[in-house]
Simulated assay, not measured.
Amino acid sequence: MSSWNFVGIIAWIIVIALLIFVVFNIRNRHLKILVVEKAKITWGTILTDLLEIVVVILAVSGLLYTSLFTKVDLTDKNEVAVTYKYDPMIVQTTMDGQGYYVKIDKKESNSPNDVYQYWLNNSKYTVSSRNAVISDATLPFTVSGVHLDWPMKKIRKMDNRYQDAYVITVHAKYKNNFKNGLGLKANRYAMEYRVLRVPARSFINVEK
């Protein structure tokens, strides 16, 4: 774990300590007014209670939002480091002799996602269409739903080297800084995504 994540741990300790302090502070003030001073709770006391409670709610909400509900901006180089890996796929053959690089498994009819299968170095890999896309090299290179600065010069170079049959694996990792540490995300993976590059749609085997 990155040492920057201790920023978030310390922040949570402070918030928990603040919560405990507020609970005991409200209790002690009320007891002092009712038991020691034998007076009634005033609107001033209630407003003080509400102010302390609001401060705790805002602190907890802020940390929860930073830790769980913020969406990563993959184009923000101050927030994440993005790396690209390129691996050539191995051609497979159907029973009738048709060659293909990617097989789409549609057997799970109840699932909104397809399952993609491909082969690298004689090993089979499986990935959900939720985390991958098939890219037809006969069409312009586009990846919908993932906002990244795609290295098109490198991709064109890989197209020539691997004859449009390879996998682009994208890793986005949170950088070590105060903001990511506060959200307990520093040095952790934000996203993994794959682009399955094929020469044409005819190199896709759809299994139903």
Rank of each mutant, 00 (worst) to 15 (best):
P88D: 05
A59Y: 11
I104C: 04
G44C: 00
L58I: 15
T83A: 13
T75I: 05
T83Q: 13
S109L: 12
I46V: 14
L58R: 00
T42N: 04
D49S: 13
P112S: 10
T66N: 12
Y100K: 08
D87S: 14
E79V: 04
V54I: 15
K106E: 14
M95N: 15
Q92C: 10
V91W: 00
T48D: 12
G97P: 05
K71V: 03
Y101L: 06
L63Q: 09
Y101H: 10
L63D: 04
M89Y: 01
Q92P: 03
K106S: 12
G97N: 13
D76T: 00
G97S: 10
K107E: 09
D73P: 02
W43D: 10
E52S: 12
E79W: 01
V72S: 04
K77S: 15
D76L: 00
T66I: 08
I53Y: 06
K103Y: 00
V72I: 10
L68T: 04
S109I: 14
I57H: 02
G99T: 14
E52A: 11
N78V: 02
S61K: 11
G44D: 07
G97Y: 09
N113E: 13
Y86E: 08
N110I: 05
T70E: 06
V54K: 06
Y101M: 07
D76W: 00
L74N: 07
L47A: 14
T45R: 01
D73Q: 04
G62D: 06
D114T: 13
P112W: 07
V72K: 00
N113C: 02
F69T: 04
L50A: 10
Y101P: 03
G62T: 08
L47D: 00
N113V: 09
V55N: 02
K107Y: 11
I90T: 15
N110L: 13
T94Y: 08
K71M: 06
V80R: 00
N110V: 03
D49Y: 11
V102W: 03
V60M: 13
E108N: 15
V82K: 01
G44A: 06
S61W: 14
D96W: 08
L63G: 04
D114C: 04
D96S: 15
T42R: 09
V82M: 02
D87L: 14
G99L: 09
V72D: 01
D87P: 00
L68H: 13
S109Y: 12
V60T: 12
M95K: 15
Y100F: 15
M89Q: 11
K106V: 02
I53S: 08
T93W: 09
V55T: 13
Y86L: 09
K85M: 08
Y84S: 07
N78H: 08
K71L: 03
Y101S: 05
V91D: 01
N78S: 13
G62W: 05
K103Q: 14
V102I: 14
D49L: 07
I53G: 02
